[in-house]
Amino acid sequence: MRSILFQDKTIFWMGLCFLSLAIAALFLPNWIVNNVMFGLARGLAVLGLMLLWRTGLVSFGHALYFGIGAYGVALLEKYTGTTDIFLRLICAVIVSAIVGYLLGFILRGYRAIFFAMLSLAFSMVMYGILVKMEVLGSTDGFSVSRTTFFGWVPESKYALLLSLIIVCMASAAFVQVYLKSSLGQLSTAIKDNEIRVEYLGYSVARAVHVKYVISAIMAGLGGGLIAMALGQVDPDSMVNWTVSGELVFITIMSGAGSVVAPFIGGVVFAFLSTYASEFMPHAWQLVIGATLLGIIFFLPGGIWSLIEKLWKRGERHHG
């Protein structure tokens, strides 16, 4: 396990990219920093979806965990007054892990459209509860206070961005180690041939379950962090099915080729939606929809496949 962590090229380059992002953010204007934060937080959820996508599973209800993470942070503050980043993150992880673990027992037996529909149903159950329950903030949701760091209340958003970068880096490294492991390879092989995996001596159900829980935790972390970045939570922008659809869209747009792809995709999406909704407020969904169709038709490997192509071309020129 350790050997993957220190020898893997992807992890090295990713570390370098995140480090330069952290330095660059010191000089970047606020609106860019904001978009980067939203993009990275969504990227975490997308990282989770990408894991499932590699097994051929599409969760059309991952907003469930996105929402659980976000509401976990908000309710933790409401009932205990806690605003500390570590407790918030731990809360988001634990709650989404528990829910993912429990639902995983059911979902691990489903494939294709039935997996998509059942995860959608679960997320809509949660949406139905949140929207109608006064105690849970109803359609208005809650506001989330500024995040503190062991009692220190930072002036700028930089501290939060830095934590976000660290969480993303750690999650991506973890996922990379997982994907390179026997279990990770096996789980990817499930998409190819389930019967063979079972006969090789590993439970397909368990492999899918493990993957599902990891992906739930990633989405929970993303949700918790976006709640902190936005300073509020509400059902329509965090749990409704359109959010799940948006996350799936970013997954397809990013491509499943690398653990870095979800973050690139997330940030691209954040800028795309900001620009589109600014310059054509009535047509930005149109842009998104057309992009989705375009990618399905012309770029099935997503943005990452483009980057890979450029990278290879660059290598050829140098070599």
Binding site: M1, S182, Q185, L200
Partner: peptide, 26 residues
């Protein structure tokens, strides 16, 4: 969709790695 070696590696690593050692590189 995988190469012959990858097929063999998955088969072999699954038969060797039990418990937490399944998180070793395949």
């Amino acid at each position: 969709t995988m190469s012959v070696l990858e097929n063999m590696l998955i088969a072999l690593s699954v038969s060797k790695d039990r418990g937490f050692s399944i998180l070793q590189a395949y």
